[in-house]
Nucleic acid binder design. Structure first.
Length: 259
DNA sequence: ATGCCAGGCTGCGCCTGA
């Protein structure tokens, strides 16, 4: 089974590339982030024509997540149980589904904006709620993984130049401790191989030629339990999808599972 | 060539992203 995660930066703007990529990559299950559209505007029909069902948690212009599957889509949980509010409400940043033999969460972790900003505390509380929510599945016998845009670079090697991130989010001890707590709950970081260069970056800013210069970050992660991690045959970042006109600023992370 | 930011709404500029 081929499982992937991809922050598409608007599913409506990305639709032609998304459909082409699903076909060319042969992906069975795709966790999508930043749909940036209301559920009513979600492109269910073209996806259905390709053979994919979709479970969607999206409310409009910001955020929005989905799970696309052509191998079954059951027991959907929309929203992060116990997740914190922001600006007086829940944001659409998590959705879970069982796809065949595997259960997945598609997550879009809050950005955090700046250290000390209310959004940064929200990010840490959100990650804590995620750890609470996955506890049972993480320790269970069924292959299970949280896939998505975590907005945290797990190590200094996961950013192109650590000195450029002094005082910024995504690399702080507290954010990394939140990831460590997730690992402590029974999940491990399924690190993909890069198709080029020596770091498996998944995000490159649109500005300042970041992609051609490979000034990237690894912030799109796959955290799998032991049955999941043990079934991984291959994992890679499809940087080809970051090329050209109309690309997302994130590349898909692809995992081949022997299930 | 991988090429100097992109998306969507509050819209014809502004906020967000990381």
């Amino acid at each position: 089974m081929r499982i992937a995660t991809w922050n598409v930066n608007s599913i409506t703007a990305r639709l032609p590339r998304l459909l082409a990529w699903l076909e060319s990559s042969g992906t069975d299950v795709l966790c999508v982030q930043e749909t940036k559209c209301a559920e009513a505007a979600f492109p269910f029909e073209p996806l259905r024509e390709l053979g994919y069902e979709a479970a969607v948690n999206a409310t409009g212009r910001w955020n929005g997540v989905a799970v696309l599957s052509r191998v079954g889509l059951d027991d959907v949980v929309s929203g992060l149980p116990g997740g914190p509010d922001y600006d007086g409400g829940q944001e659409p940043r998590a959705i879970a589904a069982t796809c065949g033999a595997v259960r997945v969460w598609s997550v879009y972790v809050p950005n955090g904006r700046e250290i000390g900003h209310p959004h940064y505390d929200y990010k840490l509380r959100w990650l804590d709620a995620l750890r609470e929510a996955v506890g049972e599945d993480a320790k269970g016998p069924r292959p299970f993984a949280v896939l998505g845009d975590f907005n945290v670079a797990p190590t200094d090697d996961d950013v192109w130049d650590r000195t450029r991130f002094d005082g910024l989010t995504h690399v702080t001890d507290k954010e990394r401790e939140a990831l460590a707590a997730l690992r402590g709950a029974g999940l491990s970081d399924v690190v993909p191989r890069p198709l080029k260069y020596d770091h498996p970056f998944t995000y490159w800013d649109y500005r300042e030629l970041c992609f051609p210069k490979n000034r990237g970050m690894r912030i799109d992660l796959v955290y799998g339990n032991e049955p999941f991690a043990g079934a991984v045959g291959d994992a890679y970042v499809d940087r080809e999808e970051r090329k050209g006109k109309g690309a997302s600023d994130h590349a898909p992370v692809v995992v081949d599972l022997n299930v």
